[in-house]
Amino acid sequence: LVNGVLVAYGGMVPFIATLAMLASARGLALQITDGKTQIVTVPSVLDLGLPDAYVLGIPPLVLVFAAVTVAGWLLLNRTTFGRRTIAVGGNPEAARLAGIDVRRQRLFLYLLSGLCCGIAAFLLIVLAGSGQNTNGNLYELDAIAAAIIGGTLLSGGRGTIVGSVLGVLVFTTITNIFALNNLQSDVQQIAKGAIIVAAVLLQRRTVRDGT
């Protein structure tokens, strides 16, 4: 909500607004936890990560992921909200002239993004059985890389839910390969950065060629 208000109604550059919120949120997390690991003691939360909670052999966390993916696909491809989102991402001025409330649309999109981040944070806590103020560090890099690999244009106007999911799977596979080969974390981060650069360059060439 704060990011959406700052960007949509405050006129701030999205990168600056979200970067400031990133720093503030990390500081708030450190203050709340006092730098200590917070152990989850709620049985109903911990049980979600146990085999007994599986549905037809599928972990509840996978089902949540699938539900969010389907809901996102329906919202983007089968609703007016989705069409407005593509229009605003492609050309905000043209969308405004077409009668779309661009600022409100952007606010709603930031709200949805925050909601999805909250769901992801909850799933991470279920997996770990605890929470730390450092949880999620550099996840923004993984998210950007997965979206780009999935075909989302950083300039806006093009992107799909299915492509993003495939991007997540590809990037996760790459990360697992790094781990299996015992690559150090610093080397992994360098490689991830190189992957992002390569994907962006490939995107620009594809757009320039009109394919």
Rank of each mutant, 00 (worst) to 15 (best):
V2D: 01
G4N: 04
G4W: 02
G4Y: 07
G10T: 10
M12W: 09
V13H: 13
V13C: 10
L19N: 02
L19T: 09
L19G: 00
A20Y: 00
A25S: 11
L28F: 06
L28E: 00
A29K: 07
D34L: 14
G35D: 09
T37G: 04
T41S: 10
T41K: 11
S44M: 10
V45W: 01
L46C: 08
L48Q: 10
L50E: 09
P51E: 00
P51I: 00
P51L: 00
Y54F: 05
G57D: 10
L63M: 12
L63Y: 04
V64S: 01
F65T: 15
A66R: 03
A66F: 08
A71M: 07
G72N: 09
W73G: 00
R78T: 09
T80H: 13
I86H: 10
A87V: 12
A87Q: 06
V88A: 02
G90H: 11
E93F: 14
E93K: 15
E93H: 13
A94M: 13
R96W: 01
D101P: 07
R103E: 15
F108W: 15
Y110C: 11
L112F: 08
G114L: 14
F122T: 13
L124D: 13
V126W: 00
A128R: 08
T134A: 11
Y139M: 13
E140I: 01
I144E: 03
I144C: 05
I144V: 10
A146T: 04
I148F: 05
I148W: 10
I149T: 04
I149G: 04
I149D: 12
G151Y: 01
L154S: 04
S155L: 13
G157S: 09
G157E: 08
I161A: 12
G163A: 01
G163N: 04
V165P: 02
V165I: 03
V165W: 02
L166D: 03
L169T: 14
V170W: 02
F171E: 11
T173S: 06
I174V: 14
L180H: 12
N181A: 12
N182P: 00
L183T: 09
L183D: 15
S185C: 08
D186V: 13
V187I: 06
V187D: 13
V187S: 13
Q188S: 12
Q188R: 12
I190E: 02
A191I: 05
K192P: 15
K192A: 06
K192N: 12
V197P: 01
V197F: 04
A199W: 00
L201F: 07
Q203C: 09
Q203M: 12
Q203E: 15
Q203R: 14
R204G: 07
T206K: 14
V207N: 08
G210P: 00
T211H: 14
